[in-house]
Design a protein around this nucleic acid. Structure first.
Lengths: 189, 189
DNA sequence: TCGTTTGCAATGCGATTGCATTGGAGTTGG
DNA sequence: CCAACTCCAATGCAATCGCATTGCAAACGA
């Protein structure tokens, strides 16, 4: 076997550069040359690890999806209600990690409107999220349409994420809104 | 005065083509040539009415903003609560007109994350919307933090619009969710 | 040592981009 | 009639795009 490098690590570095570009200047700024420059590598290397631009973008999408999932998985809480709240807040661009990932998510979310290949994994991820939220809601407040409340909560934090990203809602206000929304779900119907 | 045409009408026709392109294939499909082809005119004409691509995109943004505002203005209801509900439903891609405009709004919304010049008018429009919603909420249910509930409602329907657009939530379910959310706001805290 | 395979850098190519330029058809005030 | 002005079609141009091709350095098995 000749010269060997960590293939996955190289792909991850390039995918990172793609995400940074999307976060800073949007999806339309992603070109092979820009990605190579952002990653500090040659364009030949980018082409060596990704056969086509589209494959690179899909990899970047899976990369941030996995990263968001990892952040969710790292959330710990004693109380189920606190766990629920922590997860919802984790979706908002409050922490540095979330602030870096949220613009990328928003860009892919909008792209999914006109690109069915993005919509499919996005729907699956959202579906799992709804199922998890519904389970948590049932645990905290048995009875009632937990799945409906889970879908409503997810739509709410998704929209709130965008509002915070465009500077419409300051982060502290977003936390306040989430808390009130959550209270409404868990106490009222 | 030499040959005269309806300048605003011509700009509107081209702006319409831009919106159709965005709705069908996203912002990145907008090029002078594609717009000209979609509008059924020559590229020279597009250039004659818009000095730069950016100006054309901003015009398209104002165009759909005005159109959404017009749809809101056309909503009539006897009951303030019914008025509130009708406006919220009008934001979702349920009617043919809203279905055509929502993908365009979503594209500009995502673009506003990385383009401050879009964020400013978007924030102003959202601010007016929140003020109106808060007024209606106060009218239906005096007392309580109406502005907070208005912001929450707006974030909720914004997120729900995206969920419907990507096929995550069917339209009927969206109506059901809006009704329940509204009931929560107007009856509980 | 030598051939083979991997990992890339470099360059080229056709297509497409936004925009500038040119020129002419059509209309009207002087 | 004609100079002037609007409207716009056509074409050109430099830049950038995604992708293909080429070639070579490095590393290992034989």
């Amino acid at each position: 076997m000749p010269k060997q490098v960590d293939h996955d690590e190289r792909r991850r570095q390039i995918g990172d550069a793609v995400c940074r570009l999307i976060a800073a200047r949007g999806l339309e700024a992603v070109s092979l040359r820009h990605v190579a420059a952002e990653a500090g590598v040659s364009m030949g290397r980018v082409q060596h690890y990704f056969a086509a631009k589209d494959e690179m973008l899909m990899f970047a999408f899976e990369l941030i999806s996995d990263r968001v999932a990892a952040r969710f998985g790292a959330v710990r809480a004693d109380d189920p209600a606190q766990h629920l709240r922590a997860i919802l807040l984790e979706l908002l661009p409050l922490s540095p990690a979330a602030r870096a990932e949220a613009p990328v998510l928003a860009a892919f979310l909008a792209q999914a409107v006109v690109e069915p290949r993005l919509g499919e994994p996005l729907r699956r991820g959202n579906g799992e999220m709804v199922a998890w939220l519904a389970g948590m809601i049932t645990e905290v407040r048995p009875g009632g349409d937990a799945e409906r409340d889970a879908m409503a909560l997810l739509a709410f934090v998704d929209g709130l994420m965008l509002q915070v990203l465009i500077g419409q809602v300051p982060p502290e206000a977003a936390v306040y809104l989430v808390d009130h929304q959550l209270a409404g779900v868990l106490t009222c119907g």
